[in-house]
Computed example of a mutant assay.
Amino acid sequence: MGSPIWVLLGTDPAHQTAIVSTDEILKCRNLRKTFGDLVAVDDVSFTITAGETYGLLGPNGAGKTTTISMIAGILARDGGDVSVCDRPHGTSSAWGKRRIGYVPQDLALYPDLSARENLRFFARLYALGRAEARTRIEEVLEVVGLTDRAKDPVKDYSGGMKRRLNIGVGLLHRPPLLILDEPTAGVDPQSRNAILESVAALTGEGVAVLYTTHYMEEAERLCDRIGIIDLGRIRAEGARRELVALVGELDRITLTADGTRPVPELEALPEVREVGVQEGRLDVMVADARSALPRVLAAATEAGLVVRAVEVHEPNLESVFLHLTGKALRD
């Protein structure tokens, strides 16, 4: 159990909800869902703590959307348990749904209304009081970077601006858990970066985020832990380096140097697994390049090599994903 965390939902006394939660905001245990003979989700379990971004990655048809729908309380599960802020959660749990901000891949906006009018409409659905709604709408517009365009109709927005407003709707009621289903799909690089910065800021404030994406670089940049799902099952879970370690791939430090030759001092280092010598360069294979680099450089220098350039190559999530599923993320 982690330390208790106070989560304040709302500032209007009529709708203010303060809860004490452990830092385990979401807990899924042995989730299962079938559609006829198809087992869409099979024994899926994971947790997300306050301030953590958990990436759920998988190829199309892997079970991501079904899993998210069960967590959000939209789809009934056939087996397993979901708890939000330490309380059981399901399709009939109004308490749990008020603590989840669900941002679907499909836009849920009214194009003829402005951003502020859209947020005002959804604030009513969330039963926010007038004073709280006014304050919260301005806060959300600032978070998603739309304050300057708040009066413009949504139909005049770019795809990226619509995505950002879609996220804003999910943030209005200050949920401790935010579910983002491919929030950057089809947006320009500038909007994608703005969305990623917003998500990073939210986790810094203690929000737990469940994040799905088809962009591996987003998962590497944002996610503290990642679950790789395929054919309805979690194939692997952990931080980036833990996942890379599962498939046994090593980091490579490439030293460009004059007069390359075998260097026993390098091969003797405990961090070094293998040293490849080629004309003009050495390829040093290590388990953790960032921690090994200073000792590798020191050993090369002491051996009399004149190092002209250094490159570090780390295995990425794409290689792990291909190893575990046999598919690219966007398949």
Rank of each mutant, 00 (worst) to 15 (best):
P4G: 06
P4M: 15
V7N: 08
T11L: 14
H15R: 15
T17I: 14
R29I: 10
T34R: 15
G36V: 08
G36C: 07
T47I: 07
N60V: 07
G61E: 12
A62T: 12
S69R: 14
M70Q: 08
R77A: 07
R77E: 00
G80N: 07
D81W: 14
R99H: 15
I100Q: 09
G101V: 08
L107P: 04
N118C: 10
R120I: 07
A123L: 09
L125T: 11
L125P: 12
Y126M: 00
A127P: 08
R130N: 14
E138Q: 12
V140F: 06
G145Y: 02
G145R: 12
T147E: 08
A150M: 07
D156G: 15
Y157S: 11
K162T: 07
K162E: 04
R163E: 13
L165E: 05
V169L: 07
L177M: 08
I179W: 12
I179D: 13
D181K: 13
T184R: 13
D188E: 11
Q190D: 06
A201K: 15
L210V: 05
T212F: 03
E217Y: 05
L222R: 00
L222Y: 10
I226H: 02
I226T: 06
G227W: 02
G227A: 14
D230L: 03
I234A: 05
E242W: 04
L246S: 11
L250K: 11
R252V: 15
A257N: 04
R261K: 08
E271M: 12
E274W: 14
V277G: 04
G280V: 02
G280W: 01
D283P: 03
V284K: 00
M285C: 06
M285F: 15
V286A: 09
V286Q: 02
A289G: 07
L297W: 05
L297Y: 06
L297I: 07
L297T: 08
A300I: 09
A303E: 06
V310I: 13
V312T: 07
H313C: 02
E318H: 00
V320N: 01
L322I: 14
H323F: 09
T325Y: 05
G326S: 11
K327W: 03
L329E: 01
